[in-house]
Structure formats: C-alpha cells, structure tokens
Write a protein that binds this DNA or RNA. Sequence first.
DNA 1: TCGCAATCATTCGAATTCTGAACGATGCGG
DNA 2: CCGCATCGTTCAGAATTCGAATGATTGCGA
Lengths: 146, 146
Amino acid sequence: MNDVKLTSTLAFRLGTLGAVVTERFSARLAAHGLKPKHVGLLAILEAGTATSQLDIAKLMNVAPSLVVSLADRLEELGAVRRERDPFDRRRQTLALTAEGRELLAACTGAAAELDAELTDGLRLEEVKALRSVLGTIAGRSGLPAD
Amino acid sequence: MNDVKLTSTLAFRLGTLGAVVTERFSARLAAHGLKPKHVGLLAILEAGTATSQLDIAKLMNVAPSLVVSLADRLEELGAVRRERDPFDRRRQTLALTAEGRELLAACTGAAAELDAELTDGLRLEEVKALRSVLGTIAGRSGLPAD
DNA sequence: TCGCAATCATTCGAATTCTGAACGATGCGG
DNA sequence: CCGCATCGTTCAGAATTCGAATGATTGCGA
C-alpha cells in the first residue's frame, strides 16, 4: 500500500502555500491600492509580452471583461494609458506610464521583501534551485518561466 | 538599480503557480464531487491534528461557518460522521468513515498523478529538494510541513 | 446554586471576485 | 456594400468566503 500524505504532494502544497503567499502579498500591495492581478498586468506590459487587452487576458488566463476592470483601476491610478491601436481601432492598447513603472517597481520590491521572509535561513543554493525548478514547472504550465 | 522581474519572485510565482495547480487539482477532484478544501479537511481528520470543527477551521485558516458547509457535503457523501463530543456537547467532532478513507486515498492518488505531470522530466534529486524546501517554507507559514 | 459570560455550531445575509452572455463598434473577405 | 468575425465594454449572476446574529451548552464567580 502506498501511504503518501496529501499534504506532502506538490499539488496540494503548491495550492495551499500559493494561497497563503498570495494573501501576504496582497496585504503588502494594499498600501498601493492594488491587488496581485493588477501587478501581474503591469508586469506583462513592462515585459512587452502583450499590449492589447484581449492578449493580456489570454496571458493571464482570465476573462477579457476582467482585464477591463483591472485596466480601469490602473488608468484611474495613472499607471496606464489606454490608446486605440491606429491600425486596428477595435484594439485598446495599454501603455505603461512613468508612474506605472514606479508602481510596478514598488510592488516588485514588496514581492522581494516577502521573498526574503519566506527564504530566511535557507541556504542560497537551495533558494536558487527552488527558483530554477519552479521556473521550469511554471514555464511548462503556460506561465512566464523567468 | 535593481531590475528584479516580478515574475521571477517567489511571492508572485508561488501565487500564480499555486492558482494554476489548484485549478488542475480541482478538475481531477470533480470526478469525486469534491473541492480541494474538502480534501484538505479529510487530510486533517486522517492526520488526527484536529477533530472539532472550530479547531479544523483554525488549522485551515478559514471561517468556522465554512467548515460547516464542507462537513455538510462530506457527511452527505458518507465520508464523515458528525458526533457530539460527550465531554463537551457544544463540540461537533468529525470522524472519518471507511468511505472517507477511500475517498481521501483516491484524491491523494489524483494529487500524486498531478505531481507526476508537474515534475515530468525533472531529475529525482531536484524534485526531492523542491519538496524539502517547500516543506520548510510551508511549515514556517503555519502549514503542515510534511 | 444561580446567573452570566464565554464557547461552539449553525444560519443567513453580504462582500468579493470572477465569468459568460449580450451589445456596439470596428475590420475584413467576397 | 454585406455578412461575419473580432475587440472592448457592460451587466447580471455564479462561486466562494466571511461576519454577525442565534441557540445550545459549558464553566465560573458570587
């Protein structure tokens, strides 16, 4: 008989740990008036992976209508400008403003702080290995790998 | 200047990856009529970490009222029996039934399958290291460490 | 022993988050 | 020019979770 513990499976652990970490990240982001998904959108814009709202929705695995409200909020904060694509006026292009870059940097800093808490006491090589393996798993799951 | 990418922070990656993995786990669980939290509850019962609903709620970082509906569902499936604690009749203790054990085993198997998909192609030592590090991070975050 | 505050489970209304089905505007092939 | 697909938007509602109110029970202090 196989007596694997549920709590030691990656599936369960990544799920629960992900929820806890997101919660903590979200708490830090609250100071900036943002939620994790807002920051995820900013990161996509900075990476240049997508600019139209529909493409962003696909990258984020999220309904296009959700991108609308995320963009609304970000525009309200001056982090993002909405521009009609002149070559296809159906498309709304989202452009990162200078404030948007600052905001993203601040939020990335918050994430880095949280990282420091999470990995406190761990050996550097362990953390590097962790990042590396999570990167490959993420990449294989359709998420950005680096 | 520090040009850390948001997507490479553990905070963000654990969050997004956790969401994706939970989604996939949830899809497999649907065949058994359960959600991840139901299975988490069953795992707590099997581990014997808590039996009263309130203690379970604390362990799961969840409102007591949510445990009620989770337990309702599990009782409905015959996976769990509700018994009044004879020494404190305010307390409802949840007891795993034989079916509950089977169900948990099946769900743990589903998680293990998912693990295999996630770690396919990775070296065994990498996976072991991943489990180990995630275990310590989880333990430090108030989650079961093994 | 009586009464009162605390504890536990439960119910229920509400907040949050997200999706999916419309709809209008725009682009494109014939 | 017309039908049809695409994109953004709106909006109703599904899903999940919490928090406050309630009732039953307990334990404690006077």
